[in-house]
């Protein structure tokens, strides 16, 4: 029911498997909470308006835009950020492929692409190139021209480096 204006009752958020009780006013955006309260700065703020995909995280395993998500509306759900899909040491196969294929240049878009593409490969382990292109259509990259990104995802799917 109603939650008071600017009220600061703590909410419980489960991020990368860890549950934290946080002060979270109703107007708090998930992206801001991740970066500013939890120091999870791997998730990037690009446009802040839904038009770039840099801020992609998973809610219950599904890629969504954290810049257009009210933090309170995802309490009780499972939130995963780029920090949560990166192994404790080294890189995931997909991250390695991004490096090897030159799919990351300035790198600002990379966390968003990795979140989207990791979910794609989990749900569809053998996507075609058009399927990869469709899946990443909400992530913008101003450096690579996308070809190397598609190649990195395809190479990971085929199990070749």
């Amino acid at each position: 029911m109603g939650e008071g204006m600017g009220e600061s009752t703590p909410v419980r958020l489960r991020v990368n498997g860890v549950t934290t009780a946080l002060v979270c006013p109703p107007e708090r955006i998930l992206l801001d909470l991740l970066r500013e309260d939890l120091n999870l700065t791997g998730t990037k703020r690009g446009c802040d308006l839904g038009t770039c995909g840099c801020c992609t995280v998973w809610v219950d395993g599904k890629p969504v835009l954290s810049c257009l998500t009210l933090a309170r509306l995802v309490s009780g759900r499972d939130i995963t950020t780029i920090e949560g899909v990166t192994p404790a040491s080294g890189l995931s196969d997909l991250q390695r492929a991004f490096v090897d294929h030159g799919a990351t240049q300035c790198g600002f878009c990379t966390p968003g692409f990795v979140m989207t593409a990791t979910a794609l490969l989990r749900d569809h382990p053998h996507p075609t190139k058009p399927e990869i292109e469709r899946a990443i259509a909400g992530n913008l990259c101003r450096c690579t021209g996308y070809i190397k990104i598609v190649e990195a995802v395809a190479a990971t799917a085929e199990g070749r480096p």
């Binding site: 029911m1 109603g2 939650e3 008071g4 204006m5 600017g6 006013p25 109703p26 107007e27 955006i29 801001d32 802040d48 009210l70 309170r72 509306l73």
Partner: peptide, 12 residues
């Protein structure tokens, strides 16, 4: 961008 405060209601 931070939002101006509002009250959030969650009816079921």
């Amino acid at each position: 961008m931070h939002l101006d405060p509002f009250e959030l209601h969650r009816p079921s």
